[in-house]
Simulated assay, not measured.
Amino acid sequence: MTLQHPAYAQLRQVTPVAAVMLENNPSMYALEGTNTWILRTPGNDECIVVDPGDDDPAHLARVAGAGTVVLTLISHRHHDHTGGIDRFFDLTGAPVHAVQEQLRRGGGAGLENDELIEAAGLTLRVLRTPGHTADSVSFVIEDEGSVLTADTILGRGTTVLDASDGNLGDYLQSMRTLIGLGAGRMVLPGHGPELPDLESVAKRYLAHREERLSQIRGALDTLGADADVRAVVEHVYTDIDETLWPAAEQSVRVQLEYLRR
């Protein structure tokens, strides 16, 4: 039987190149858990790993045991994607590339927009897609056209913008960048199931953000220009369960900064 998401502790082949190992670390922000992506050409033991995940010894050992890891890539700084870097580096010895220098290991380099990375017989193109965090990147698998979007686009729901360094203007531009890649590209997200068409999902995300921004403008008209984050959340986010309001507060804070700037 073909594995379906969520399939914990099992290597699930999603495309000819990309397989996923789902970490058992579910949360409000991580959905069912972190997707660790293992990329390789058919029949090749060498692989690239994208986002080893949190510091879960069993998960990291399973990922390391899935093949000969020659390179590790980090999509962004959040701990559910990076907490296991040191343990994973000890297991594999593979260099770790990341935007932030403090996340690099083993002589790993930074990640520049439009940079081509060649390893394990594959070619990946880096796209800087900030907004969720300032250091967020996506990876285009040039060999097949699918795109690893990390937390910039999720497999279900919408992305929370981190109030510490997220930026709505950047995020809207990142959606336009992803739309510009064209139709028919599979989404390989950081959390949740894969999706069949990046262009349509990115357009939906862009429309959703613009709709929320309009709703927040309306809330400020009603509540006053100096309304605080919680008041705006309670006014706007009546369509989601209140248990999700803390996550909504993160995004609202970023959107208010955008409007007030």
Results as ranks from 00 to 15, higher is better:
M1A: 14
Q4D: 15
H5W: 15
P6V: 13
A7K: 09
A7N: 13
R12K: 10
A19V: 02
Y29K: 06
A30I: 05
T34L: 03
G43F: 09
C47G: 06
I48V: 06
V50I: 15
G53H: 01
A66D: 04
T68H: 14
T82C: 04
D86P: 02
R87L: 14
F89E: 10
G93H: 06
Q100Y: 10
R105H: 11
A109D: 12
I117T: 08
A119S: 13
G121K: 02
R125T: 15
G131L: 01
G131R: 01
E144F: 02
V147I: 07
A150F: 08
G157R: 00
V160A: 09
S164V: 13
G169C: 09
R185D: 00
E194Q: 13
L195G: 05
S200F: 13
S200A: 15
V201G: 09
E210V: 09
G218R: 13
L223S: 00
G224Q: 11
G224E: 11
A225D: 14
A225F: 10
A231W: 03
H235A: 11
V236W: 07
V236D: 04
D241W: 06
W245E: 01
P246D: 05
A247R: 12
A247E: 15
E249R: 05
V252A: 04
V252K: 00
E257F: 06
R260A: 14
R261G: 15
R261P: 08
